[in-house]
Amino acid sequence: MEAGTSVATGSRPTIGRLPAVRRQDVVFENGLRLVAGLILALIAFFFVRLYVEASPAFQRFGLFGFVTTNDWDVSRELFGALPLLVGTLITSAIALLIGVPVAVAAALFASELCPRRFRGPLTIVLELLAAVPSVVYGLWGVFVLIPNLQGFERWFASAFSFIPFVGGGAVRGPNYFIAGLILAIMILPIVSAISREVIATVPQDHKEAALALGATRWEMIRTAVLPYSRAGISGAAMLGLGRAIGETIAVTLVIGNAPTIGKHLFDQGYTLAAVIANEFGEAANDPIHRAALIAAGLVLFVLTLIVNAGARYMVRRAARGVRAPSGGRAAAPGAAAA
């Protein structure tokens, strides 16, 4: 072997490989393209099919009217999805309000404060929450949360009755708050897992800069870690929101399934996903009811699409927004040993 470009001594020259080998590449590439295309086609198909199936409802109530009418009454064949939409948004908002701070706190603890040897077990336990079937969460809500939280709910409703939407009515067993609380627990694993990933990308440089200024752990987190990972954590919260919006069975069990807009936090309600799960069986012989339920599904689908798009946008902005133009690479942990 003399020159760098020379060909090896084997029977097959390296630059001039058999056509069959190159064909593999073509097949592989087109195969992947097909699979990727199928996913897009499937989503488009979902959308079109849902719209077609839901169109009787939209024709009767109007596209806008369907989502803004506050009246869902099966016996009178009136289907306005506003109570369901409101129920979905309220329970999801409660889930975010309770779940995100806890998830971020858990992520911060696991990545910045927890002794190294407990880090693995803690993470595993947190992620185990994601493995519990949602019907189990629902049952736990029915048999544990609802009976045991009644006292707390009554106290909270009267102590904070000056806050709009909190007080001012009897505390029901199943209600928005219980549903939101269950959802908060259910979104914990994903929000904290993504937050932990984002927090892990904070360069050691910035953390050391804060510590070298005489920052305590908490001050270091506040000055270096949180500002850097804020957008990413927002994205994590949005992904959690996507999950909360679509959750069906656990919510169905604890929200009371009353197709009205609840007057306060501890009142019964309904959500888009729950109504579909509950009423689909009886709607089989009633075309307009069936169409209305499918329309509710379409609204849910669009809502999740919007939330997911928002989440992607935020995570992407987080990824490039705060990167330093010069020398922004994270220092390797060993760099200090120079």
Binding site: D205, T223, V322
Partner: peptide, 9 residues
């Protein structure tokens, strides 16, 4: 430090 590390935000 070795690398300039102002807080990026």
């Amino acid at each position: 430090f070795q690398r300039p590390n102002p807080f990026p935000t």
